[in-house]
Design a binder for these strands. Structure first.
Lengths: 237, 237
DNA sequence: CTTGAACCTCACGTAACGTGAGGGCCTACG
DNA sequence: CGTAGGCCCTCACGTTACGTGAGGTTCAAG
């Protein structure tokens, strides 16, 4: 019995794919029709059709076309397991990004006078240097502080940085009493926030050290100033 | 005071981007250096540098380059909200795919004699036509049935389809007693599985109707046979 | 003045097709 | 039996965000 031969348009309609897609699969050798008419029209046999359904099924799972031949000819198990791993990573990435974006929008809503770029850069930094658990801790701290206390906290920082900057530009010695005062308050503010949690403190340090120069180039904190404060803190023991 | 001008290599190192990336941003007009040397070397001013940090921040959120100018010049709020929506959809898709893949691997492990392509096609179909809640119901049914009963169930279906097919090919009238018997058992099996849940039954019907012709072309169930059984069931009232 | 590093401009490759352009083939209708 | 509309063919460029050379110029230090 001579099997039914499908023309490309028929097959496209039957599978819900497009003619162009079948052309593409032919081009890359994924599904080459087993026959052609004299004039060059593609003719797909029943084996071709079965293979196409399998290809489509694997594609719907998000498998790259490249990996489909191996899955069809060899052992699909490993291909599927590897793919699952990839998908799990996708989920993780997307979820992390989601909470990051939510955090940014929320923060801009609730913090007065915070502009978007600041919020984005701050959150992105936090996301890069803290684990999700640490972030949760930070969030708890923030909630414990309350809105009013938070703004006070920011004002304290602003004032402290301004004072430090003034001393820095004036050339005050880091071990001078006025800078020792700054160093003490600086540590107090950090302690108040991290509440002595060594991991939080560690992440904070890493962040300052690695991002310092970059933030400097944005004009936010001068890297010389950073170093100057560091010396003052060291001098304070 | 004349601002510091950055050469492309310096800027690349400072931001962790590549020179090629900066070339690209220049090409598409996202970040055009405000100056060039006589010889054509790019020179980035401080405003350029600030803009680049903002671009990088938005890129790290996964924003397409196309949308970044709007976010920088106009209102970032809407851009970010739209992006969040996209990301939420990504999470959904990836999670759905994840559980689909897990289901396939699990099923191949536990069901004897089920090959991968069958499992994939079956699961993909289920995923397409049932809501997650319905799938949970189905899973509950399966667990209630137990392994042995499940295999019995499959054998029942196989036998029933074989009988129906024989009658179909023999040209038996759909209202003949032997086909009425088949129709009765057919409904019994479906009822046993859906346990009278009208939603489950609805999804099952939709699936059969829409996928019937396709499965037919795979040689699994003949579309003529499907219709024939349908007539028998109608005749049975 | 000479290198070696850094810079420049093309320009092709990536994944999986979408979307025409320009031109044969096929079949039903008149 | 001719033709018109539909289906088919083969290029070939566009999409995203760059990576990766190729081939040639410029800069900065010795």
């Amino acid at each position: 019995m001579d099997e039914k031969l499908w023309k490309i348009g028929e097959l496209a309609k039957a599978t819900g794919l497009t003619v162009r897609t079948l052309h593409h699969y032919d081009e890359i050798g994924l599904l080459v029709p087993s026959e052609r008419t004299q004039s060059g029209h593609r003719l797909y046999g029943e084996a071709d059709v079965r293979r196409l359904y399998e290809i489509r099924a694997l594609r719907e799972l998000g498998l790259p076309l490249q990996e489909i031949p191996a899955a069809l000819d060899g052992d699909p198990r490993k291909t599927l397991e590897d793919h699952l791993t990839r998908v799990e990573q996708d989920v993780e990435r997307a979820r992390r990004l989601q909470s990051l974006l939510q955090g940014i929008l929320e923060r801009v809503d609730h913090a007065s006078g915070l502009d978007y770029m600041e919020a984005i850069q701050a959150m992105t930094l936090l996301d890069k240097y803290y684990t999700p658990e640490q972030l949760e801790k930070l969030d708890t701290r923030r909630q414990e502080l309350g809105d009013a206390a938070q703004e006070q906290y920011h004002r304290d920082w602003d004032g402290l940085i301004a004072t430090a900057k003034a001393n820095y530009e004036r050339g005050t010695d880091p071990s001078a009493p006025e800078m020792q005062e700054v160093a003490r308050k600086w540590r107090e503010l950090i302690d108040a926030f991290t509440q002595g949690d060594p991991e939080l403190l560690g992440s904070l340090k890493t962040m300052f050290q690695e991002e310092g120069p970059e933030r400097a180039s944005q004009g936010q904190i001068d890297s010389g100033l950073m170093e100057y404060v560091g010396r003052a803190i060291s001098a304070a023991g």
